[in-house]
Amino acid sequence: MNEAAWAVGRVSGFVALFLFTGSVLLGIASRSGRPVFGLPRFSVTLLHRNVALLGTVFLALHVGTLLLDPLARLNPIDLLVPFLGAFRPFWQGLGTVALDLVLAVVITAFLRHRIGQRAFKAAHWFTYVAWPVALAHAVGNGTNGTDKLFLVSAAASVAAVAGAVLWRLSPTFLETARARQSLAGEERPR
């Protein structure tokens, strides 16, 4: 039983990270306001949302099973307060940070229509912190975190997200009215 919980806890952590990587990439794609890979814009947005939610489910599984697992020696307090853990407290603390940031992002996303675009966007910026922190947590805390295969895939993820962020920062990234307007050579006073 414990073996199973341990295995589920580890695997679900990897799956969650994998899904969040996909969600970050899809999120950046949907922010661009363009259809991506032949998918219409609303599909990109829906996919981004659903992949993120699935990632959250696996994150819950990851945290839940390890909470039940005596081997992991995880306290409920570790879910909220980082760096108090018994085993590799620093690396586990990063997991706590990522978890709390993900919760903030998910909850504000659900409440977007209520709290408004501004608060939603502000919270959504947390993903740019949560994702690298989660990755560091996986490398530093995971039993197989330093395996060659995992390191290679982590490096690939970093490359993909970094590439997407660079695209995000490029001047031609946004396909919005303001961008269309500046193409028309106009200045928008603000």
Binding site: T176, A177, R180
Partner: peptide, 24 residues
């Protein structure tokens, strides 16, 4: 005052809506 012409609604409601010269 909020619409930025992102085009999601025109994709979802393609039979009712289309985009104008500027994407709205």
């Amino acid at each position: 005052t909020r619409c930025d012409g992102r085009g999601l609604c025109t994709e979802l409601l393609a039979t009712l809506l289309t985009r104008d010269d500027w994407g709205y």
